[in-house]
Design a protein around this nucleic acid. Structure first.
Lengths: 336, 336
DNA sequence: TAATGCAACTAAATCGGTTTAGTAAGAGGG
DNA sequence: CCCTCTTACTAAACCGATTTAGTTGCATTA
């Protein structure tokens, strides 16, 4: 049950491999009607399917890109992936998605593996810990785009939320709702990861702009498993925070679990504002007010940017790479 | 900035391509220490990375599998994908995921495309509408595994939930809770799709076993957009159902939205039982009782089965393919 | 009538690896 | 001293496409 190759088709049609190749690539310019018909017949009869590997080897294009997300558990990641896939499939480009699990070693492995597979370009949510690797790709002018996280000192197109604006939006809204004691919980800050860092600093700036004091104890960056503890800690402080911002969807989920378990009542016990507009936000009791990231747009823009880079590879019309910030949106429901 | 090839390495190390290849494949049997060292040095200096395409072309293995899901919006799909990826990445196999969007044409396109890419095998959530294609693969003894849906008259290993058991579990529990009027809503039944069909028939059987009459009006198979209407319709019937089963996660989500909008109260207005243990089930008010599918196990088993098929390709130790049913689990919370 | 042009192909190189068959050099045995 | 064996390599075919540089036969044209 061997697969049919182009040589088989050529032989059965009584023409050369070259002619079959021309036919398949619609280069009909000087091709006889007879020949075309004959080849079409043979292809039909044999069910011939071209081997993309061979083509890619010769053409040095695989029509495949790689996506490496830092942590696929974030809703944001899955939404961005969806958008990337949509854009790519429209252009008959395949996508290989890998999850680095926030582990730089895994990230390195995947980058290497995908490049060995000769993918035409890479969209990476960088862990930030493989600068040498990133830099090497930049040097080689390999098509590369970052999402969600900035890597300092590297000239790579990066698509991410305007985190500062997101926290300004959040704090402004909470202040408007008469809150003076606003706390924030987010996942661990041990590594310098853009969204977390920027959201914290955005939080500080926004508070300052409202002339509110910054309680260092109000800023909790802890591991997912410890969020429940961090929340309890916050609620034991004096003055007790009247509003809590969940720095991302995972944090929000943990806080909600605690709330359920401890039978807290939102917004009576405290106001809650989540970053990432999770699907169940309108279903919670009370419906959750959130800051939505335009994940789809970010993914779409990143994909388009990468595909453009890939297609302009030969030409030297490369723009200077930059940082592309997307505006958050406040979705008012009832948790504040 | 041309990529370094094996020939370049060979030249710089003063050996032949063959030797470099042997080195890379750890066939050190008859290799001098000097040579090894020299090659290692050159590889290090040049940052040489093998081109997988070329290798795959010769070896007729890409170390990549394809996964085609019928509809990625189902949580079940994403969980199965995660499990497949986990298993595959452990064995250094890449995964290309495609979403057929419940469209047979798309499914066909993806199957063709992935096979053209020479993926070593395919895990498919079949739409069921491409029997000729499926059959062709079976004939060719191409490594193929189905998930979630049976295709009649085809001998392919299929991994799915024991849907009948799931509905027995659901109905048993509701009856135990004194419900006599149990309705079920699920997404459209126009196409014969295993989970929906089997869940409905499981529902009928379970009711019969409890000597409960089957109200045809209690069975609603409608499009996602019409679920809200179907729910209203059910609640207007006499006798009014006291319990409603949501046939899958998408249905459940729509029902919950309606409940919120119409300010219904669960379980006072009616009991609600969802199939698929969605992440927010414990967070809803009241926490939702669900039937959980062992999605992770299903994905894992499917992946292992496929990899086994791939590895036993040459040998003729292929077992007879079969249907692998996985047992559901009732997760009792407070919505019934 | 020889040269030119054009349509309709084909031969062979190429992509970058793997793999098979083979070779050269030195050791050991008779 | 010749033969065989082993070690340490290499040449070349091969995988299945694309692509470039021809080639062939026939109709024009000077």
């Amino acid at each position: 049950m061997k697969r049919v190759t182009m040589a088989d088709v050529a032989e059965r049609a009584g023409v050369s491999k070259s002619t079959v190749s021309q036919y398949l690539n619609q280069r009909y310019e000087y091709m006889g009607e007879e020949t075309k018909k004959k080849i079409a017949e043979v292809i039909d009869a044999t069910g011939y399917q071209a081997n993309t590997l061979a083509r890619s080897l010769k053409q040095k294009r695989t029509f495949t890109i790689g996506v490496i997300v830092a942590n696929i558990l974030h809703i944001f990641s899955t939404q961005v992936i969806r958008a990337i896939e949509d854009v790519c499939h429209q252009q008959d480009i395949s996508v290989i998605v890998c999850n680095a699990d926030d582990d730089p070693k895994k990230e390195e492995k995947y980058i290497t593996m995908l490049r060995a597979k000769q993918v035409d370009g890479l969209i990476v949510f960088p862990t930030g810990e493989n600068k040498t690797l990133y830099d090497q790709m930049v040097q080689e002018r390999y098509p590369l785009v970052f999402v969600d996280r900035l890597v300092e000192g590297l000239s790579v197109d990066t698509f991410l939320l305007d985190n500062k604006a997101a926290l300004r939006l959040a704090v402004d809204y909470l202040v408007e709702k008469q809150h003076r004691y606003i706390a924030i919980i987010t996942t661990s800050l041990i590594r310098h990861v853009t969204p977390r860092v920027e959201r914290i600093s955005g939080y500080r700036i926004a508070l300052e702009q409202h002339d509110l004091p910054i309680h260092e104890e109000y800023i909790q960056g802890v591991n997912v498993e410890d969020i429940s503890i961090a929340l309890a800690h916050l609620l034991a402080l004096t003055p007790r925070p009247t509003a809590i911002i969940a720095g991302n969807d995972l944090t929000l989920m943990e806080i909600l679990k605690s709330i359920k378990r401890d039978k807290k009542h939102i917004p009576n016990d405290f106001a809650l504002l989540g970053i990432d507009d999770v699907a169940y936000a309108p279903l919670f009791e009370p419906p959750l007010t959130t800051i939505a990231q335009p994940a789809f747009q970010i993914g779409e823009a990143a994909a388009r940017c990468l595909l453009e880079k890939i297609n302009s590879e030969s030409m030297n019309d490369r723009r200077q790479p930059g940082i592309h910030r997307f505006q958050p949106k406040l979705v008012v429901r009832a948790s504040c």
